[in-house]
Amino acid sequence: MTQLIWNGLFVGSFYALVAIGYSMVYGIIKLLNFAHGDVYMLGSFTGFLLLGSVSGLLGTWSLPVLLLVLLLSMLFTGTIGVIIEKVAYRPLRSSPRLAVLITAVGMSFVLEYGIRQIFGPSPRVFPVRLAGDPIFFLDARITLPQIVLMVIAAALMYFLQRYVMKSREGRAMRSIALDTQASLLMGVNVNKVISRTFFIGSALAGAAGVMAGAYYGSIDFLMGFIIGLKAFTAAVIGGIGNLYGAMLGGLVLGLLESFGTNWLGGQWRDVFAFACLIAFLSFKPTGLLGERVSERM
């Protein structure tokens, strides 16, 4: 039981990191950014390249090096996110939403098959594998790397929450989500704030990508597809557009999956997760923390 909860929370914190980007972007420009999962994949591959270039340092210095790589990958994926928005979404800002949605799907393919061209279709093995002796806590098998990764995820979310809720930029983000025109008239540079939102969301997805690579050990060019859909599910469960909702939704989805696979068997994991998505969309489309229902796609 404790084991199931722990596993759920662990996987859930990955989902939450990716879901935040989904949800923030949706909140601010009402776009389901289907390329978001692929930014996560891009984060893994960035981490893979960076770690490969410093492989001499691995072993004794694994953890500090990994943290540095994490930071650099976040900067890189964040920048890519900003470029994607500028090139693919901004020119279409005033077109019908469906057009932007299709563009997002196209962007997703560009990233996936671009990486396939560069790294090939077969899975790559991550240079660092975070394994460790398990610690037993209340009958649950917990490893040190798991704890480290969860602490990193929690710290990232803590700082994000602080940024969005307590700062000038955060206020500007929330005001754009609520009323873009009025924000413009309050002197908010909307384009700049949207760029910043993409940077943050993509950086967090990139971080999750590096962490997943280091934990699971193997990465491939399609790994972002399923996690993108899972993150979308998490965002819907929590209430899309809502920051706390994305965090909560990620953890709830992780727990649901963990318990679901325990009852139904591992091969039912994705079936169960997406059944939850359908159930939420039909019975509580606003999610756990969402309120307004009028502006949904």
Binding site: Y163, R168, E169, S175, M186
Partner: peptide, 13 residues
């Protein structure tokens, strides 16, 4: 009201 001071408020990340 604080949102309206956006462009004059200087805070870095």
């Amino acid at each position: 009201v604080k949102t309206a001071m956006h462009s004059r408020l200087k805070e870095n990340v």
